[in-house]
């Protein structure tokens, strides 16, 4: 095992990815510690040190692996049944679509960027409008990214997706601008 893949205080990268999914979906740190048989001091070291290893990961091997684990979702029996925020039926429907409909995913990515450009928290905007929390969204993002990284998506497809995202971002920006009485420089034309 590569040095930077050694478990930290007994928590492997796979465990760590699954814990992060749980926490970002609303699980309490306490419940995670209890399930994994660690305490808060151990968890905070684990969290800090895996974060550092990712920053040091210049060839992106560790990050890609983390992405794969993240995309695979929570399978560890110790973690599976930990309570998280309950997702609404509508949110669940949107979440399924986010995973299966890549264009929908790109649209929400574009919308999220547009939201930030217009003074909104993009993560909260997605939660408010689609009922999808940050943890679930990131998990789907990792799922799509790992497809890109493992080569099952060619460069033309990637470009098409990014163009679509850009197009959607502009649409949402126009909408957000209108809600704020238009952009500051809308009246200035060549």
């Amino acid at each position: 095992m590569a040095n930077n893949l050694e478990p930290i205080h007994g928590i492997s990268l796979e465990d760590y990815a699954q814990i992060v999914i749980k926490i970002t979906s609303g699980a309490s740190i306490e419940s995670i510690c209890k399930a994994m048989g660690i305490d808060i001091a151990v968890w905070e070291e684990v969290n800090t040190l895996w974060g550092q290893r990712m920053k040091e990961d210049t060839d992106f091997k560790l990050i890609m692996l983390y992405g794969d684990y993240f995309a695979a979702g929570v399978t560890n029996p110790k973690l599976v049944n930990i309570d998280t925020n309950i997702i609404s039926a509508e949110g669940q429907g949107n979440l399924d679509r986010l995973k299966n409909d890549r264009y929908f995913y790109e649209e929400l990515c574009g919308a999220r960027t547009a939201a930030y450009n217009y003074g909104l928290d993009g993560a909260q905007w997605i939660l408010d409008n689609y009922g999808i929390g940050l943890g679930d969204f990131q998990s789907v993002a990792m799922h799509h990214m790992s497809k890109r990284n493992n080569g099952s998506e060619d460069i033309m497809e990637t470009k098409a997706f990014l163009d679509y995202q850009r197009e959607k971002q502009e649409e949402y920006e126009a909408k957000f601008a209108a809600e704020r009485g238009g952009n500051v420089a809308d009246d200035i034309e060549f």
Partner: peptide
């Protein structure tokens, strides 16, 4: 949070003006 959101929005408007000029440069 609000401060950060508004800061991000102000920078968004500045970027909007820049890209408006950039597009016009291309076209005109």
């Amino acid at each position: 949070s609000t401060y950060n959101k508004v800061l991000s929005g102000v920078c968004g408007q500045l970027a909007n003006m820049r890209s408006k000029a950039y597009d016009a440069q291309d076209r005109e």
